[in-house]
């Protein structure tokens, strides 16, 4: 038991520091708004809920991305999986919209998984190719213009409406989070995921069908991206070209800031959750400050480096 709690504390440290950093962002942002406008919007629940609603899309993408990063792979096809799911969902419309959107994600995940697990093409390059294919398919489908079709009422309700004053998107995010947490901590699939991330050959020798698990992880990532796409289309009432572009790098950053090792095998979902909140809050503070895009990019990069310097450092190679 004691060794378990010790290894936990190694994983908890990034989460604690990231949470502290969120507090720092909140305090610094509030001091700024108080000095400049005499108000503290960052502390108002309405504002925070609104930010979390926007953050839900990133959160769902990051949850899927984490599954893939945990097995030491990466999914670069997220941007156009997200956009394709949104576009197909809006163009099908009706009650089938959401299943079709998710189906797109499932299919892309399946292709990615087969390419990476069975053909052994490095995920970095295979998912990149799949992303290009999805973009090509969507450009051919829409003619390169913004699709004219709109989101269905159910999509709008899930992404834009509120229940008891809380955005529905937040509920979806929570549901996804609970699901991922249960899968990672309470199922054999979760055990296998960590095992593969640590050493795939060892997991294979231990009798794990590592290739099947890899496919499952990519399918889950594709599904998450598709779900985010469907919701995002509901939130903005339509799908648009390049709607997923802003989600790839932030989702990887959120996972890594949350303490998940980019080489796989280590990290907790709570960290990813905190990482997403950190990035969303950082973005909203920077936009309150009227920070130009240039400054945002610089600060964004420096924050990632800073956080990793604090707790993400690898071990020195000595043998």
């Amino acid at each position: 038991m004691s060794s378990a709690s010790l290894s936990l504390s190694r994983d908890d440290r990034p989460i604690l520091i990231a949470a502290l950093f969120i507090l720092v962002i909140l305090v610094a942002g509030t001091i700024y708004t108080f000095a400049r406008f005499g108000s503290a919007p960052l502390l108002s629940p309405t504002y925070l809920l609104q930010q979390l609603q926007i953050g839900a899309f990133l959160g769902i993408v990051a949850a899927g991305m984490m599954m893939v990063i945990l097995i030491a792979q990466i999914d670069l096809s997220v941007p156009w999986t997200l956009a394709a799911a949104a576009m197909m969902a809006t163009s099908i419309g009706g009650p089938l919209a959401i299943p079709v959107g998710l189906g797109v994600g499932l299919l892309v995940g399946l292709v990615n998984g087969i390419g990476v697990a069975y053909l052994r093409v490095p995920s970095m390059i295979f998912t990149l190719g799949v992303n290009a294919v999805m973009r090509g398919l969507m450009v051919a489908h829409t003619g390169g213009y913004a699709p004219q079709t709109g989101a269905t009422d159910l999509m709008r309700m899930l992404a834009g409406d509120r229940t008891l004053g809380i955005p529905n998107a937040l509920f979806v995010w929570i549901a996804v989070s609970v699901l991922v947490t249960i899968v990672l901590q309470r199922t054999t699939l979760g055990r296998y995921v960590y095992a593969i991330g640590n050493k795939e050959a060892a997991a294979y020798l231990a009798g794990v069908d590592t290739r099947r698990i890899t496919v499952i992880c990519f399918v889950l990532c594709g599904l998450a991206a598709a779900l985010a796409g469907v919701l995002l289309a509901g939130y903005s009432t339509k799908a648009y070209q390049g709607m997923g572009d802003a989600y790839l790098l932030p989702s990887i950053a959120a996972v890594v800031i949350g303490g998940t090792n980019i080489l796989g095998g280590r990290g907790r979902y709570l960290g990813t959750l905190i990482g997403v909140v950190l990035i969303v809050l950082l973005n909203s503070v920077l936009s309150i400050m009227d920070m130009p895009e240039a400054g945002r990019q610089v600060i964004y990069g420096l924050v990632i480096i800073f956080m990793l310097l604090v707790y993400g450092r690898g071990e020195r190679v000595t043998s």
């Binding site: 950053a253 990793l308 993400g312």
Partner: peptide, 12 residues
């Protein structure tokens, strides 16, 4: 910094 190249260069 001993940060993984992929994520370090993403940030820089």
């Amino acid at each position: 910094g001993r940060i993984q190249p992929i994520i370090a260069t993403l940030a820089t």
